[in-house]
Nucleic acid binder design. Structure first.
Ligand SMILES: [Mn+2]
Ligand SMILES: [Mn+2]
Ligand SMILES: [Mn+2]
Ligand SMILES: [Mn+2]
Lengths: 226, 226
DNA sequence: ATAAATTTTTAGACAAATCTAATTTTGATC
DNA sequence: GATCAAAATTAGATTTGTCTAAAAATTTAT
């Protein structure tokens, strides 16, 4: 029954995405509590939904060891991420939104149910590989583009020329900080000095005079060596 | 309380739109039964929702005389229609959908909640005045463009050159019939003969040889004299 | 190994939106 | 104005997704 239509509720989709994200980050099954934390719900609600998803064959659950997506569940989650990132890209590139404004809208748009809207959007934008935050957009088969050796700025050695390719934290607060410092995707920079005291780094760009970036900022900026 | 956020549920929005459409067509209040018919629900469900909308000040209800939108309710309904038609226009003009494919998608997209997405879409498309079916797109103040003397083909006298500006029925079935006859918005045609027997009309276009259109088709084609 | 802390589940309730079946209300008709 | 058919409402149930509070299960620490 309904093996074809592949139609899940908005809530189910959000849980699948949350389970994907949580187990991605921790590299293990997602705990009931962690899922609840991510979705701002209560653990008891998660228990109910996990049971439902489990019966649908979308997740495997071993209590106290975490929830994992099945292949089918991962496929669904990946498609939702694809839609989310394609919409973010559309909003920034074509409707002139700023990169710190699009997430909430994409949270809604990603649930639009259509067999081919996603693919048409993808074609319209000429198959973008990364979203406005530098996150890879999976293709229609769920394959993520390789980030080609990107690393957090915190791991880059001194005196190496790099350019920004993405952010690990794409909260409006962080993105606004970056905007305030004129740091955006593509910006080239070099680490001039590191301070052992707090792991902060002094960086120079083409335009700005040197600026001091604290550890947390460095960890959340993804760069590539040029 | 919540006079500002102006946030209604998807269901409320669908009811408001249905009430707008039904009372528009009948030029009087929408009966509980008619609303139920339009939304494919039951009258008892309508009773409940009308009560809710009434308490919110969006409709006035006089039992057995119909439901009417208040000014506030009409404003909301108009904005939903605006979003619906803008999305349809986007899908056809930019994502290469056909005009018979976009309605269901727009039914979903119209509920995306955003302060300015609609306006940006409008700007992106250069403020279109009509959707792919020839229906007027209200502007951000809820003002509908005048259709400039459009009338159903059934009311056009013989030997008058007209062009198609819209359809009154935009069901996929009707639109596919039109596509099959190569009739689309902009097509120029003249009524050559009328048959009293069944009110059918023989029309000629630039390209096709003469064809016979039955009464129902003529009633649902909107045209303008050139 | 026992106790403590944490995690998870259960039980019961609730809000939103719907349904069916029964009942009430009303406008229209004779 | 009484009657009748249509329209509308009520009552009670259902589904989905959520919550609180309490109980149970399991891991972790002593
Ligand atoms: Mn996002
Ligand atoms: Mn993103
Ligand atoms: Mn439509
Ligand atoms: Mn339309």
């Amino acid at each position: 029954m309904n093996l074809l239509a592949s139609s899940h509720t908005r809530s189910e989709e959000n849980y699948l995405k949350a389970i994907y994200a949580v187990s991605q980050k921790a590299k293990k099954g997602a705990s009931t509590t962690a899922i609840a934390g991510r979705l701002q719900t209560k653990a008891s609600s998660v228990t109910d939904m996990v049971k439902k998803l489990s019966e649908k064959g979308l997740v495997d659950h071993r209590p106290y060891h975490g929830v994992r997506l099945t292949d089918q569940g991962r496929k669904v989650a990946t498609q939702i991420i694809r839609r989310h990132r394609l919409w973010e890209t559309f909003l920034v590139n074509h409707l002139n939104y700023r990169w710190d404004e699009v997430h909430e809208l994409a949270e809604q748009l990603e649930h639009i149910r259509s067999h081919d809207l996603t693919d048409r959007l993808d074609t319209f934008m000429d198959h973008p590989k990364f979203d406005p935050h530098g996150d890879p957009i999976p293709d229609r088969n769920g394959h993520f583009a390789d980030n080609g050796g990107a690393m957090p700025l915190s791991q880059v050695p001194k005196d190496t020329l790099v350019h920004i390719v993405g952010v690990r934290d794409s909260s409006p607060a962080f993105l606004k900080l970056l905007d305030g410092l004129s740091l955006k995707i593509g910006t080239q920079l070099t680490i001039m000095r590191r301070f052992e005291f707090d792991n902060s780094a002094e960086v120079s760009t083409r335009f700005n005079s040197a600026m001091l970036l604290n550890e947390r900022v460095c960890e959340n900026l993804t760069v590539k060596v040029l």
